[in-house]
Amino acid sequence: MSSRRGLLVLSWGLLGVVVAVVLAVGTLGGAEPTPAERVRSLSGQVACPTCAGQSVLYSDAGISVQIRTEIAQRVEDGQSDDQILTALAQAYGREALLTPSASGAASLAWAIPGFAAVVAIAGLAFAFWRWRPTTTEVSDEERSRVEEALREREVDGGA
């Protein structure tokens, strides 16, 4: 029993090490995103001004093609993501960005889910706390009654 338990601990421990190493290797050595990846990611954050609810990335409207080209140009010029998004917001209006801003009324879009997460976790914790198991005393009489009921059921149902 104890050797099985030891093996179990060893197995989980080993797995923990493997996972930690893999995640470290896979995360720390991460290369910078390539220019093409940056253009793609940025295009996904800008709304196509003339189409219904699509991002520039997924639209072939003339203006979208133009904005994609502009983004590619700015990436090539070495501008940072923030700089590019700010410039685009100035050119096409704040509503051209698909990400709600972190200030003003729009920031509620971020704050409310955060608040909801806190409430949800607190609620779950409260539910489990409220439902703590209560130890019930079981008398011998109740035990025999249960055993009898189970026996009867087996006879009835043929199990």
């Binding site: 709304a47 509503e95 698909l98 709600p100 003003g104």
Partner: peptide, 12 residues
């Protein structure tokens, strides 16, 4: 509420 136009899209 205040007439502001904003978008919540894929990144969100």
């Amino acid at each position: 509420w205040n007439g502001d136009q904003l978008r919540v899209g894929e990144p969100f």
